[in-house]
Amino acid sequence: MLSIRVFLQKLLILLHVTLCVIVGKTLMVLFPNAMKRYILKLGAKSRMNENPKFSYENWGPTFFSFKYLLFVLKVKWKRLEDEAYEGHPAPNTPVVTLNGEVRHLLDFMQDNRPLILNFGSYFSSTADFLIIYIEEAHAIDGWAFKNNVIIKNHRSLEDRKMAAQFLQKNNPLCPVVLDTMENLSSAKYAALPERLYLLQGGKVVYKGGAGPWNYHPQEIRAILEKMKSEMEGTSE
Results as ranks from 00 to 15, higher is better:
S3W: 02
S3L: 14
I4E: 15
F7E: 07
Q9A: 12
L15K: 10
H16T: 06
V17Q: 05
V17D: 04
I22R: 09
K25Q: 13
L27M: 11
M28E: 07
V29M: 15
P32C: 08
K36C: 12
K36H: 14
L40D: 04
L42Q: 13
A44Q: 13
A44K: 15
K45H: 08
K45V: 00
R47I: 01
R47M: 10
K53G: 09
Y56G: 08
E57N: 13
N58R: 05
N58S: 15
W59H: 11
G60I: 01
F64D: 05
S65Y: 12
V72C: 09
A84V: 08
Y85I: 09
E86Y: 06
P91F: 03
P91G: 13
P91Q: 01
P94T: 03
V96L: 08
N99R: 13
G100F: 02
L106C: 08
D107E: 11
D111G: 11
N112C: 06
N112H: 09
L115V: 03
I116E: 02
G120E: 13
Y122T: 10
F123D: 13
F129S: 15
F129H: 15
L130C: 01
L130G: 02
L130E: 00
Y133P: 00
E136S: 14
I140H: 06
G142Y: 10
W143L: 14
A144M: 08
K146N: 11
N148M: 07
V149S: 12
I151A: 01
K152R: 15
S156K: 08
L157T: 13
E158G: 03
D159E: 00
K161H: 04
M162W: 02
A164L: 02
Q165V: 04
F166M: 04
C174R: 02
P175Q: 07
V176M: 06
V177D: 04
L178T: 00
L178Y: 02
D179M: 09
M181R: 08
N183I: 01
N183L: 10
S185H: 11
K188T: 08
A190H: 05
R195A: 04
L196W: 09
Y197K: 07
L198I: 15
Q200W: 07
K203C: 04
V204C: 11
V204E: 00
Y206I: 09
N214W: 04
Q218K: 13
Q218D: 09
Q218Y: 08
A222L: 05
A222S: 12
I223M: 10
L224D: 02
L224S: 05
E225S: 10
M231Q: 12
E232N: 07
E236T: 08
E236D: 07
